[in-house]
Amino acid sequence: MTMLRLSRRTLFNALFVSTLALAAGPATAAGFPEKPITIVVNWPAGGGQDTAARLIADWASKRAPVPIIVSNVTGAGGANGIRAAAEAEPDGYTLGIMGSSFVARGYLNENATPLEDIDPLVFFGPDPGALEVRADTGIKTVQDYIDKLKAEPGSIINGNDAPGGSSHIVASLFESAFDVEMTKVPYQGYAPTVAAIISGEVQSATLPVHQLADQHKAGDIIILAVAAEARHFLTPDVPTFKELGFDFVAGDWRALFLPNGVPSETKTYLEKLFMETMSDPAFVEAAQKVGFMVTPMPPAETKAWIVAHDAAVYPILLDADLVTTRKK
């Protein structure tokens, strides 16, 4: 009986809500937003992209008159979700979130959405890569690591994403920057890679810092250096590559985007909403707890960042035989 009573109540709610929706009448041009805004996430619930999106949605909802909800459209290596957002009605009610894999995916899959088909909105933050090794390898510094690879190319087994994924690109960029060769073993995402380095199946990894910060503190894993401009807030004891004298910056990043053709007032509204949300110190603190760095940027700078990333990554992809479409 409980079930029946419950459905009767939900039924009533449904009727009530739909009556309200009817009463609200036809849409007026000026009043954006007047219905929930959706952020489309291109990876499954529970992943990094999803966590970031839900965090943003939750905090932005407090500033917006309407709820902001997250919807996961997954599959095809993340290309589905990007396409779902890029091909949505350009009314500002559908946004997407993307990461660095967007760029590689564009060259791997002819059905993936190219940069021209989306309109970058607000930059969320970088998720800098790092170089981690197991403590029992005896490697203590980046120089040790490079020396070992120079002496015996391929002698270190590195855990990373499948080709085109963020940590695979960090590893590839590392190889080309230092002219070394490691044995790159692909895993499906960060969690399996973390398990692999902890269990000793691989000796090193090129994961973002927050994935292994705890193991670094516990002493099982040593984070040799961070591939960012500044040290990471989770591991203030770990130097950057730049401090060590190597010009090496690489990693993942996240940004919100809109489909092309959103009216400019709507776009301005959304830009303001998300810039303010992400600049809120309380939000930054909440994001840091999860391990995210937050450095919001407006649309023009976001686009410039993506273009720069594309330029840096393209030769690497080409070299690794990962450019099958849209050859430059």
């Binding site: 499954p44 529970g46 992943g47 969690a191 973390v194 902890i198 707890k289």
Partner: peptide
């Protein structure tokens, strides 16, 4: 270990992280 066994524990872990527990 701090490694989620599956996607469900990944969400749970996210919740713990949001509350400042690693």
């Amino acid at each position: 270990l701090g490694v989620p066994g599956d996607t469900m524990t990944a969400v749970l872990m996210g919740a713990l992280l949001l509350h400042g527990l690693r």
